[in-house]
Amino acid sequence: MSLTEDEIAKLVDRLVEERVSKRLASVEQDLAALRGMVTQGGGNVPEDRTTMVVFSGELDPLFGAFTIALGSVAMGMEVSMFFTFWGLNALRVSKKYAGKSIGEKMVAAMLPSGPKSVPTSRMNMGGAGPIFFKYLMGQRNVESLPSMIAMAQEMGVRMVACETSMTVMGITREELLPGVEFGGVATYLDDAARSKVTLFI
């Protein structure tokens, strides 16, 4: 059997094509596997985000929490704050008694009505401490807690109130700052798992 030059060329082309596509197939397979790994990994790369659990409800830790929140935004980061238990005091704008049980009314009466009236964690001295500290802060031109909270909200800090601790404390949605979101532990963990900075305050 003899082949013309044209036929030989075609045969060679076909053989080369076959071999190359066979090799290519395995390379493509590896590439797809790698791509999958990269996308999976991509989901776990932390975002430039600060996530905080704000558990404490006194002036000093709240001041720290909002300083970090505003600082994070200034550093170009996203911020999520999850308010639970005493921390909910920072988000209160009013105190309601109507429709609450006796126990809830008692808790409502004992809790501060908002960030303006939170105690200090040390040297509270029956309410004299916060007055004294606020006077000092004003003297030294340190931003007040309510104004820091307003700034944080305006600058796009995500604020989430923990529903379970609201139930325990008898706090209703209407008593909290408008614009606050509501969620649970999964909402917090979802943000925390993607954050470079996580804090419990």
């Binding site: 300083t67 505003l70 600082g71 935004v73 200034a74 550093m75 170009g76 030294r140 031109n141 340190v142 931003e143 700034m151």
Partner: peptide
């Protein structure tokens, strides 16, 4: 001037 942490960097970033 007269501003305390974190306000200078907040103002600067804005």
């Amino acid at each position: 001037k007269g501003l305390n942490c974190p306000m200078p960097i907040v103002r600067i970033s804005r």
